[in-house]
Design a protein around this nucleic acid. Structure first.
Lengths: 141, 141
DNA sequence: CAGTATCCACTTAGATACTG
DNA sequence: CAGTATCTAAGTGGATACTG
């Protein structure tokens, strides 16, 4: 069909982009950590139960409380994908009201450190970015 | 109105999250670099006109060609926001068909280096993540 | 307690066509 | 060449209600 050309082009460019993603680990990493809740969960687990600063396990409801405003859907979804990727572990204790806790793995801990590095860079340079935004606004027509 | 409570809650939690973003530079940084085209443009400019590896200025159409599949809308939009934040510069030469070229600033160069660091981490650990995904799939019920 | 399932609203990317 | 304007389609987060 001639009318399908546009759709085909779209599919092709999408496929090309997917192929690109397949060989570009940094894009995949970005896709993972740029998720709003991923970094928050990682940070929460990396900071420990009561923000002690020492990584430790936390329960589902504990995380839900810490990440104020997260819906159960997103929390579960994010937790699952992190577990799936081996960044966190999920432990179930068969108590009467079942107890589930999550903890960073070695790999997750490593990613957490990476994020801290990112944070350091951001704190060092974001103010500069913000300053540029301001000045740009100032001399706007 | 009683029926507005849900909307109000939503607005409040959104406001709370925005307030959080306001004081969390790393989240803002992530928001910026996790954009699909941002990293690609930064990488393109950081790798130079013909992927020589040396950062250099590139023209609009040159970027459009390099980032296969980008729509003019997204290219312009991303370029503008990067310029706005002082990460790239835009130079116009008043030739007959007007010539516009983009180049990384010091700050942009710095971010580019950051992204390269991210890439290094990703290349070192993403295969591990992928391996975890595989094994998880393997022992699935 | 720790989720699961469903629906809805909103953001946002992309196609397309037009302009200086 | 280097954009701008507009419209539409789709992915995605969030609210809500229900379950073991």
């Amino acid at each position: 069909m001639v009318t399908m050309t546009a759709a085909q082009r779209k599919a092709e460019s999408k496929a090309a982009y997917n192929a690109f993603l397949a060989v570009c680990p940094s894009q995949k990493l970005l896709g993972r950590i740029s998720d709003k809740w991923v970094t928050l969960i990682l940070t929460a687990l990396g900071s420990g139960p009561d923000c002690t600063g020492v990584p430790g396990s936390m329960r589902y409801s504990e995380l839900a409380r810490t990440l104020a405003g997260v819906s159960p859907k997103m929390l579960t979804q994010t937790l699952r994908s992190l577990e799936h990727d081996g960044l966190i572990t999920r432990s179930v204790k068969a108590t009467v009201p079942v107890t589930v806790s999550y903890e960073l793995t070695e790999l997750g801990l490593s990613l957490h450190e990476m994020i801290r590095g990112l944070k350091a860079w951001a704190e060092a340079h974001m103010d500069e970015v913000l300053a540029n935004r301001e000045s740009r606004n100032a001399d706007a027509s």
